[in-house]
Simulated scan of single mutants.
Amino acid sequence: MPRSDARRNYARILAVAEEEVAARGADASLEQIARTAGVGSATVRRHFPTRPALLEAVFRRQLDALAERARSLAEAPDARTALLDWLRALTTYAATARGLATALVRDEESMAHACSTTMTAASEPLVRRAAEAGAVGADVTAADLIAVVTGIVLATEHHRAPAAEAQRLLELAVRGISPAR
């Protein structure tokens, strides 16, 4: 078990990193994060040996919450509504978490794999139920929908209101993927 000062440093670095990434995106300065957290660069590297490791930790908490939301929606009475509610939540988070979509498409395999695996696994039951209900085509996969959301977020990240624009584009995509009955 890490010492209490190491746990405090980890928590402080992560909190500062969340703020810096939110403000500056995935390219936030590791040196600035260290300065703001009141630790040295070596301390940041000890806790997070690579930028992808730090970014994964920054995004992990919310991704876990999104995965939990998917699990809670998995048994909702209306499979289409449940899937769309989750996709909207994912889109909103990804559009407001500056750098998440960019980090996912960069050559940062461990982070991309971890995030993609978490979101794909969480949404598979929702997609399967929606397909069984005829709300989406049988050939639509969770990975397909994650790719659609990622593309939308990348396309809107420099928009003056990225979350609103991302939601608007998601609604356009939904009409094509799952027209209302």
Rank of each mutant, 00 (worst) to 15 (best):
A166H: 05
R106D: 15
A89R: 08
S72C: 05
R88K: 06
A147V: 09
G99Y: 01
G176L: 14
E75P: 00
R168I: 00
A103P: 05
P162C: 00
T91C: 11
A155N: 13
R69G: 05
T150M: 09
M119S: 03
V149H: 11
A138F: 01
D107G: 13
E132H: 10
D107K: 07
E124H: 08
H113D: 12
R69K: 09
T92G: 12
T91S: 13
A94N: 02
R69F: 05
G137E: 15
A135T: 02
L126R: 04
H159P: 00
T118K: 13
V127M: 03
A131C: 07
M111K: 00
T117M: 06
A112N: 14
L145E: 08
L172P: 01
M111V: 02
D78R: 01
G151A: 09
L104K: 04
A121F: 03
T102P: 01
A82P: 11
V105H: 08
L169W: 09
E109W: 07
A155D: 14
Q167T: 10
T150F: 01
V149N: 13
R71V: 07
D78L: 01
V140A: 11
H159Y: 04
D85S: 13
R129I: 12
T141P: 10
W86S: 09
A89S: 15
A70P: 02
A76G: 10
R128K: 13
V127F: 04
A70M: 03
T91V: 05
V148S: 11
A103M: 06
A147N: 13
L73F: 02
E124G: 05
I152C: 15
M119K: 00
A122P: 02
G137H: 12
L66Y: 11
V127Q: 06
A164V: 07
R128H: 14
L73D: 03
A122K: 01
A67H: 06
L73N: 04
A101W: 00
T118E: 15
H158I: 00
T150L: 10
L170F: 04
A101G: 09
V148M: 14
T92Q: 09
R80Q: 09
A163Y: 01
L100Y: 02
A94H: 03
L83C: 11
P125C: 12
A101P: 03
S116C: 07
A164Y: 08
D107S: 07
T96L: 07
T96Y: 01
H113G: 09
G99M: 01
A138W: 08
A131H: 06
A70Y: 01
G176A: 15
L100T: 00
D144W: 08
E109G: 05
L170C: 07
P77S: 14
E171Q: 13
A143M: 09
L154I: 07
A147T: 12
A122D: 03
R129L: 14
S110A: 11
A130M: 02
V105K: 07
T141Q: 13
G99F: 01
T120V: 10
R168N: 12
A166D: 05
A79C: 10
L172H: 14
V127T: 04
S72G: 11
V127P: 05
E171W: 06
L104N: 09
I146R: 08
P125R: 10
D78M: 04
R80I: 00
W86L: 08
A65H: 12
A155C: 04
Q167I: 07
A101F: 01
A163M: 03
L154T: 08
T120G: 02
R160H: 11
I146D: 14
L154Y: 10
R88F: 07
V149A: 14
